[in-house]
């Protein structure tokens, strides 16, 4: 474990002055922590607070932070006014299918690149990381129009591969590189072909990497707004687009807006609470983001 810069000098100062300074230093440290965390907590709690308050309390000034008459009416209103259930299913289908396809295609690709050391192929990952999502959309839009795929979930699943596939290849490449090759070599010597060595030896060992890739691909697909806002129709909207529409139609229905926002983002936050280790591994390895 490394030693933090701020933690060191305590050893140097004399015990008496040291104690006073150490207390001051500790106070400063917790203050810094408070400054860092309070904006994060404030925004999420404010979202929760808005979603649980009736309209009168939401538009009160000065603002009411803790709901006086907590209610679930805002959530009922969201589901009553638009087919949020359908949009939730859409989001789940798109995120699950595009993640599954990304893994199906991307895990072998990561293995192939790591084994053949064909890193030129990995360059496309960087290029797709640099490309604004919007710039794919014009040709896709034209193509899907031509194929009659606009307003279908397939259009979204295919386009979300652009988010999931690079993440998967990048993460898996790293994992397969770190894997010791001896076990596969042994399998090959025993007469297995490279496909069998991959399937029976490397793949089971790389399961943690697949979990990381799957979580990131799923979250970024779930959060994606730009592809669906252009390609989805009334029936195929995903949750982020549905929430955006609530905004355009109900400018001042803050309770409903916050409830809709919470419905979209809460699943991701809960998922994060359980798998934060994998998210940190993935995000720092690739610095990826959709």
């Amino acid at each position: 474990m490394g030693v933090a810069a701020g933690a060191l000098p305590r050893a140097q100062t004399s015990p008496r002055i040291g104690r006073g300074r150490a207390t001051l230093r500790r106070l400063g440290f917790w203050l810094a922590l408070l400054v860092l965390l309070s904006p994060v907590v404030l925004v999420f709690l404010w979202m929760l607070s808005l979603s649980l308050k009736p309209a009168v309390e939401n538009t009160a000034y000065p603002p009411i932070f803790i709901p006086r008459n907590p209610t679930l009416d805002n959530f009922r209103e969201v589901f009553a006014n638009s087919p949020f259930g359908l949009y939730t299913v859409n989001s789940l289908v798109v995120a699950t299918a595009s993640t599954a396809l990304s893994l199906l295609v991307g895990v072998p690709a990561g293995y192939g690149i790591a084994k053949s050391r064909a890193y030129g192929l990995a360059a496309f990952v960087l290029v797709s990381r640099m490309t604004p999502g919007l710039s794919f959309l014009i040709p896709w839009f034209m193509l899907f129009r031509y194929l009659g795929l606009n307003n279908t979930l397939w259009a979204l699943i295919i386009t979300h591969l652009v988010i999931g596939l690079p993440i998967t290849i990048w993460v898996m490449m790293g994992f397969f590189e770190d894997l010791h090759p001896e076990l596969e070599e042994a399998a090959l010597v025993d007469g297995a072909n490279i496909w069998a060595a991959f399937r029976d030896v490397a793949l089971p060992l790389a399961r943690p990497g697949m979990v990381v890739a799957a979580i990131l691909a799923f979250i970024f697909s779930w959060n994606n707004f730009i592809f669906a806002v252009v390609l989805a129709g009334r029936e195929t909207r995903t949750l982020p687009v549905a929430v955006f529409n609530v905004l355009t139609f109900e400018q001042l229905a803050w309770g409903a807006l916050a409830a809709a926002a919470l419905i979209v983002t809460l699943p991701v936050l809960i998922l994060t609470a359980f798998v934060q280790r994998q998210i940190i591994v993935g995000m720092t390895a690739g610095g990826m983001k959709g």
Partner: peptide
């Protein structure tokens, strides 16, 4: 874990909450 939540939260949802927080009067 709490500190990294903004990074995984859905950007549209977050933007919406900020829109309400930015309101000049309320």
């Amino acid at each position: 874990s709490i500190y990294i939540l903004p990074m995984v939260a859905t950007p549209v949802a977050i933007a919406l909450v900020w829109t309400m927080m930015f309101h000049p009067q309320l």
